[in-house]
Every structure is written in structure tokens, then in C-alpha cells.
Simulated assay, not measured.
Amino acid sequence: MKRYDFSACFQRSDELGPYINPRNWIVDFEEVFFNSKAKRADERFHFCTTMIERFSGRPNPVKAVQYQRNLAELFYCTGDSRKGEALYQKIIQKERTNAWNWLDYASHYCAGPFRDFGKALSICAQGLDAIDIMEEKPACFFERETLYKKIEEIYTLLGRKKEASEWREKYMEERQAEVVFCLKMEEEKNIRSFLIKTTRTEPRRQKSPALLAAGSGI
């Protein structure tokens, strides 16, 4: 297997000037390799492993997980579902509440040589279980909505209109709940801001001369 040096993506060039960051090109590389499927498998493999090594252990691990998903997708494209499955298991152990991990994982069983709608639904159900134990916050709604839409899509592919309609309703209800939750948070934020502002601007009450005189005579 030929070796490719994608670490050069991070090297600045004096010719480009100080305002151009080579990291901006990494997204372009990733998109090209992702769309190439298995046509440039060797290059894509080295690109993904280089990026995983580069971003692993950083304060924000999102990038590393993103390239792990890209690599797992490559394994499925080359027919090695065993490696793809193993890598997705590793990914979801670290990032269980990231809906994109579950979504991409399930997608490999919705079409192609590994199509298995039952497995895809099982993966989505596991993802929902993982997300439901999160502390309620705006991100939770998006995560659930993402998987609700995927489940609706799977039932649509199966031709099961009743179940697809039920999950579409769940999705719409979740969207509505998200709006209510965010409005409530915004209202509470405004109330706190108002209270802080009035506390800071309210003048300190001065004791009346009569009270001061009475106090001095005690």
C-alpha cells in the first residue's frame, strides 16, 4: 500500500501569507474522499488515519470522531462490514449521545449489500435510549429529531405507512417541544438579566434624619 503524507495539510506556506489557514482545505479533502466511496480507498484510508491521529486527545474530540465515521464508511464501501461494525462500536462507546454516530451507523443497513432494516431500526432504538438519559437541554431535541426522521425513513422504505406516519408525528411533537423549551429558557434568561440589572442600578436606601437622631440618643 502506497504511503501518503497528508500531515503536510497542516504546514503553512510563506507564499500563501499569514491569513490563509491550510486547515480550511481539510474539509474539502474529506468531502472529496467521502464522495469517492472506494475508488480512492488507499488515499482515503491514509487521509482518515492521519486526521484521527492528529485530532485524537484534543480538548474537542468531535473532529476525530468525524474522521472515524469516514473511515468506518470506507470499510463498508470496500465490503469489510466486520471492520466497519467494530469501528462504529468503538465510536458509540465514546460518543453515545451523538445522534450522527447512530444515524450514519444505521444508514449502512438501509441500502446496499448489507441492507438489514431490522438491524437499522435496532441501532436507532439504541441511540434513542442513549440520548434519553441525557440531561434535558436544547441539543437533546435535535438528537431525538434526527433519529425520529431516520426511523420514519426506514419505515417508509419498508412500505409501512402507518409506522412511518407515527414517527413523523413524534418528530413534529419533538419540534414543538423544542420551541417551547427554548422559549422558556429565553424567558428565564431575560428575567435573570432584569433582576441583575435592577439590583445593580437600585440606589441604596438612606436612613432618615429622624432615625439617625433617635439612634444616636440610645
Rank of each mutant, 00 (worst) to 15 (best):
R204D: 08
A139S: 12
F29R: 00
Q126T: 08
T78Y: 05
P113M: 04
R40Y: 13
L71H: 07
E53H: 11
A72E: 00
E53A: 11
E174D: 10
Q89W: 08
E152T: 13
F34E: 09
A210K: 13
R205L: 11
Y148G: 06
E173G: 09
S193R: 10
R23V: 06
K189F: 11
Y67N: 02
A210Y: 08
E31W: 12
R175N: 02
W25G: 05
A210E: 15
E135D: 13
L121N: 01
I123A: 01
Q11C: 11
A210P: 02
S107E: 04
R69Y: 06
I52V: 09
E31Y: 13
C48Y: 07
I154M: 07
L157C: 11
A130S: 14
F141K: 01
R23Y: 05
E135K: 13
A130I: 04
D132S: 15
S216T: 13
F6N: 00
P59V: 04
Q11Y: 11
M51Y: 10
E169Y: 02
E169Q: 12
D129R: 13
T156S: 14
I151L: 06
L121W: 04
A125S: 14
I123G: 00
H108D: 02
A64C: 07
L121V: 06
E202S: 10
L121R: 02
A86V: 07
K189Y: 12
S81A: 13
V179Q: 09
R192M: 09
G112S: 02
Q68S: 09
E73M: 15
K39I: 08
K184S: 07
T198H: 03
F47M: 03
P61L: 02
L103F: 15
A38P: 09
I196M: 15
A120V: 02
A41H: 09
L195C: 06
G57H: 04
I133C: 08
D5I: 05
C182S: 07
R3T: 14
E73K: 15
A41W: 06
F55E: 04
G215N: 04
H108W: 08
M51I: 01
I20W: 10
E166G: 07
M1R: 03
I52F: 11
Y19H: 14
C77I: 02
G112H: 00
K63T: 03
P59A: 04
D80W: 06
N101Y: 06
R200T: 15
A8P: 01
I196D: 15
K162R: 10
P18H: 01
R204Q: 12
A72R: 01
I20Q: 05
L16Q: 04
Y19M: 08
L147V: 10
R82A: 07
E143M: 05
S193T: 13
S193W: 02
I91V: 03
T78H: 03
A210G: 10
Q126C: 08
E163T: 05
I91N: 00
I20D: 07
E169T: 01
F142I: 13
A86H: 12
E166M: 09
I92G: 00
E30T: 06
V179M: 12
A99F: 02
A72F: 03
K161V: 12
A41M: 09
E153Q: 14
R144S: 10
P138A: 04
Q66D: 10
Y88R: 04
R40S: 13
S208A: 07
S122Y: 06
W25F: 15
C182G: 00
Q66G: 03
K207G: 01
D28R: 13
F33R: 08
